[in-house]
């Protein structure tokens, strides 16, 4: 098992260590043929991705600058749409709806337009709370899984169970557990209407999500833990470091690259959370995430929905960018620079 552990950060981001070909004509020719061969192999995949990802993204951005066709609320006449400028964006960001005579007015409470900032706050709340809990519990699980004991195989298989269960099923399952007469209430002797008010509903979503994704987090952290050689710990023990010191000074810094990649993946996943709150609470009681808001808007107007989905992925992109900068700063003192230095030295 341990042989499969890989340096996550380095593995996923850096290319294979290059074979340094001797400089000269033959090497150049080899590079050219390899380049052509590589292009032949890769271009089909890139074309497919351009169709299934690139086209929708570009088309969503184009759509987001167009008016939704529909009835004008003031005149009752059908309006055909046309160029909208940034009104679809101001609709969400500034919560401006079209009032009588096409003038921009504040969206009425309860309309989808008025929910944007609530949905943003909810999405970030879910992201921060779930990822924090998952990191802490996942770390603990990973430390246990890294230990040598009989039955470790069973433990590693067990953690895959929540991961393998479809999120839609997880949502129904926890919906049943959190039902009024369900097991959660009867276990704790409580009579909480879990999906009936804001905070219980939010915590129900958080608990279900933490249950499902912590094991995944644990596996990623475990992969990082297994890269730390035992000799480092032995040396620290000899030098008299306590358990806490060993964790603080060895485990944490050495596992950090893998941990950051794991957290990044989870954050990006949590920011687009949809299935769980959509099925568990239908977005009621302030559990509407940005993704749910987009889906609700689709039936009311494609173009506003396109603007909102564009805003959503820009938010996710920005968060990822901040993380990668943060990670990039870290990668400089781990592994990465050796190849760069080697190249620079040439």
């Amino acid at each position: 098992m341990s042989t499969q552990a890989k340096p996550l950060a380095a593995e996923t981001i850096s290319p294979t260590p290059e074979r340094h070909l001797p400089k000269g004509e033959s090497a150049d020719r080899k590079a050219v043929t390899q380049g052509r061969w590589a292009a032949t192999l890769i271009i089909p995949s890139l074309i497919v991705l351009a169709i299934v990802v690139g086209y929708p993204i570009v088309s969503a951005i184009v759509m987001s600058f167009q008016n939704d066709s529909g009835l004008d609320p003031a005149t009752g006449l059908f309006v055909a749409g046309g160029f909208a400028g940034i009104t679809n964006y101001t609709h969400w960001l500034l919560q401006q709806c079209t009032g009588a005579g096409g003038a921009a007015v504040a969206c009425a409470p309860g309309t989808l337009g008025a929910q944007f900032w609530n949905a943003t706050v909810t999405t970030f709340f879910f992201t921060i709370v779930t990822v924090l809990l998952e990191t802490i519990i996942g770390f603990w699980m990973a430390i246990i899984m890294a230990r040598a004991f009989r039955g470790r195989g069973l433990l590693r298989a067990a953690v895959l169970v929540p991961w393998a269960i479809p999120t839609a099923v997880t949502a129904k399952l926890w919906g049943f557990i959190f039902a009024f007469q369900g097991i959660a209430n009867s276990l704790f002797g409580a009579s909480i209407l879990w999906t009936g008010s804001e905070w219980p509903a939010k915590w129900a979503v958080v608990i279900a999500d933490v249950w499902k994704t912590t094991p995944f987090m644990a596996l990623l952290i475990l992969a990082g833990l297994q890269l730390i050689p035992d000799t480092v710990y032995e040396a620290a023990k000899v030098d008299g470091a306590s358990t806490y010191q060993r964790f603080r000074m060895i485990t944490l810094p050495l596992v950090k690259p893998a941990l950051m990649v794991a957290v990044l993946f989870r954050v990006m996943d949590a920011l687009r959370m949809f299935d769980l709150p959509f099925i568990l609470t239908q977005g009621a009681n302030n559990t509407t995430t940005l993704s749910i808001l987009v889906i609700q808007q689709i039936r009311q107007g494609f173009n506003s929905a396109a603007a909102l989905s564009t805003i959503t992925f820009i938010i996710i992109f920005l968060v990822a960018f901040i993380f990668v900068r943060f990670l990039g700063a870290n990668a400089v003192d781990s592994g990465e620079p050796t190849t760069r230095k080697a190249k620079a030295a040439k």
């Binding site: 993204i57 088309s59 759509m63 993704s291 992925f313």
Partner: peptide
């Protein structure tokens, strides 16, 4: 990394 919702609107219309 693109969220599913970023794809669903244009695909739904298309």
């Amino acid at each position: 990394m693109f969220p599913g919702v970023a794809l669903v609107t244009p695909l739904f219309q298309l």
